[in-house]
Write a protein that binds this DNA or RNA. Structure first.
Length: 580
RNA sequence: GCGCCCGUAGCUCAGCUGGAUAGAGCAGCGGAUUUCUAAUCCGCAGGUCGCAGGUUCGAGUCCUGCCGGGCGUGCCA
């Protein structure tokens, strides 16, 4: 590595000052301003005080004593208050560029995670209605995180947790049953906290009109590996109606669950989300995992009983108060189910787990991680990333969303109106812990102004250029050092300098859990390519050497854009519709 | 009250984990097209990085305190 070479060289000089490897961290970074070279270190500034020297003087001495291979480092300069700036020799930059292109090159070397198994859980929305737009941000982030982790060598596993047990699902069944009975002409009250969404009325009407046909259709749509857990209840809706209320509600619940999970899964597919596992809460109950987790906590003396309830000592983990695991009436809380779920996740052999949660759950992190620690799991095993709220604006006004009240923008509507690619890209241009305003009008009406199109266009433009070259019988060939030595224009080198950052960008996005860096970087690449493209007009009419180098540079640029768009989950089109 | 997140150009947001003159897109103004896609490029204008201290060679970035906005603080899920 280039950085290692520089570090070694610098350390060699520093020994003369009695400074050794363990004394100082040598930072090397790419200066913002290109005239400051390709890499820069603040070493002399950091050491100035410690050695009682003026930084600039010290920098001069260090630079003078450095011996670096000329074919790698072209020049070393002192600038500003004492920065040491390195200019990378062009032939070495070409070597780095080829390393990005080469399948066995830089993108292989960053796969350092040793194939360790890592679980990434995201969305995990309640199965009580169609996915709404809030899940779109989680989906975009989670899926890209999975791909990023794979890119740095993890064996990453995408997971969706389905809360198919408990109060919410019961309410769902009650709501559907009430709608059904109402449509059948019975005078029944709608449950107080029931789900008012239009989709339940539609579902009830379908059931009333088609009954067994509707059930068969729903079940057929479900005939799938990932969803074998959900079975259609026996009989027809007409039969369910006549059952005792509790039993009846259960049937309607199951049916609604089946339908809604089908929608959710289909929406995920449309959005390009692929989950390796849909984990059902009901399985936890069936396999007695709540009891088992509770037993273990008991043995480890992390729980106690009071007021008839069972409490977890989360105050020992800096939580404000202890939390109930089993209510006085014997019913387990959601918290206990979650503990059991994550404990099982650990037992399934994942060395690390990342959960993406909404901001309304941040108060939950402390106790959840505390519970994991109490179970004897290593600190830090469960990592929680909070995705901040999205405010959707329409006509400049925020849209209020509530699933119970039934007023929300569905993810499907967003995909229909804005498009999956644009949506993903908008989410991935922002960092995860920022609140975000999503202007629907802007996204819908002015899509040509969206940055994702700039990147797509750059890709299509390169395809078009290479096609034209082929049509004219111009051979490009695989990028090679000899041809690329003929790069010359400033805009070309600026592009090269940016392209060779690809491996670092991927590593930093994966490590920091900030996939938005991919989008920001992609935008930069597109801008630099466009600049190069405009400034170096009529490439195909250039002398052969120049032309070849420019086309090969284009080829590498296209490759980099493809890698980025792949990670982001956005299509890289060969062609774009030309605007009038 | 306590906890977490946010506050950067008119708007939406970046700022590569403390670097050099704080950037992009959109909106505004002015230019560039005998072309391999103008969905582009070039230029101008636009800033007390919420405020005040502190840490140090150096702060949008770290610490403290305020101000403003959002969320959380259930034997809900």
């Amino acid at each position: 590595m280039l950085e290692d070479l520089l570090r070694k060289g610098l350390l060699g000089v520093l020994e003369k000052y009695g400074v050794f490897e363990e004394d100082v961290e040598i930072e090397l970074e790419k200066p913002r301003d290109r005239s400051h070279g390709d890499l820069s270190t603040n070493l002399a500034l950091v050491l100035g005080k410690r050695l009682g020297r003026k930084p600039r003087e010290l920098a001069g001495e260090i630079a003078a004593n450095l011996s670096l291979p000329h074919d790698v480092i072209e020049s070393v300069e002192i600038a500003g208050p004492g920065f040491i700036n390195f200019r990378i020799a062009r032939e070495h930059q070409v070597a780095l560029l080829l390393d990005v292109w080469n399948p066995a090159g830089a993108l292989q070397k960053i796969r350092t995670a040793g194939n360790r198994r890592i679980n990434v859980e995201f969305i995990s929305a309640n199965p009580t209605g169609p996915l709404n737009v809030v899940s779109a941000r989680a989906g975009a982030f989670g899926m890209t995180m999975v791909r990023l982790l794979d890119a740095v060598g993890y064996d990453a596993h995408a997971e969706y947790y389905v809360n198919d047990a408990g109060r919410q699902v019961e309410l769902l069944g009650q709501s559907l049953r009430a709608r059904y009975l109402q449509l059948a002409g019975e005078d029944v009250e709608f449950p107080d906290e029931g789900y008012h969404g239009q989709y339940l009325e539609t579902m009830a009407a379908e059931l009333l009109d088609q009954d067994e046909a509707a059930i068969r259709a729903a079940a057929a749509a479900f005939n799938d590996e990932s969803f074998q857990r959900v079975q259609a209840p026996a009989g027809s809706a007409e039969d369910w109606r006549k059952l005792p209320e509790e039993e009846s509600v259960r049937c309607f619940s199951k049916y609604a669950l089946m339908k809604i999970l089908g929608w959710q899964r289909e929406t995920c597919r449309r959005f390009g989300l692929r989950f390796d596992t849909w984990y059902f809460e009901s399985e936890l109950h069936e396999t007695k995992r709540l009891e088992r987790a509770l037993d273990r906590l008991r043995k480890l003396e992390a729980v106690y009983e009071e007021d008839g309830a069972v409490w977890f000592k989360s105050t020992t983990h800096d939580d404000e108060k202890d939390r109930v695991l089993v209510r006085a009436d014997g019913r387990p809380t959601y918290f206990l189910a979650d503990i059991a779920y994550h404990f099982h996740k650990f037992q399934r052999g994942f060395e690390h787990a990342i959960d993406f949660w909404g901001p309304d759950h941040h108060g939950y992190i402390q106790r959840m991680q505390g519970a994991m620690t109490s179970l004897g799991i290593e600190d830090g095993w469960l990592e929680v990333q909070i995705l901040q709220h999205v405010t959707f604006l329409e006509g400049g006004q925020p849209i209020k969303m509530s699933k119970r009240a039934g007023s929300f923008v569905t993810m499907d509507a967003l995909i229909d109106e804005v498009g999956a690619d644009v949506t993903k890209y908008i989410f991935l241009t922002r960092k995860p812990n920022s609140h975000l305003d999503f202007d629907l009008d802007l996204a819908k009406d002015q899509t040509e102004k969206n940055p994702v199109l700039k990147v797509k266009y750059a890709h299509a433009r390169i395809c078009s250029l290479l096609n034209e070259a082929a049509a004219r019988g111009i051979e490009v060939g695989e990028p090679d050092a000899q041809a690329l030595a003929h790069l010359g224009h400033e805009a070309e080198w600026a592009l090269v300098a940016e392209l060779i950052r690809l491996p670092r960008v991927i590593v930093s996005a994966a490590w920091s859990r900030e996939p938005h860096r991919l989008a920001v970087y992609a935008d930069e690449i597109a801008a630099l390519y466009n600049e190069f493209y405009t400034k170096c007009k009529k490439m195909l009419e250039q002398p052969e050497d120049r032309r070849r180098s420019q086309l090969q540079l284009s080829l590498v640029t296209r490759h980099v854009i493809r890698v980025l768009l792949d990670l982001i989950g956005v299509e890289a089109p060969e062609k774009m519709e030309k605007r009038d």
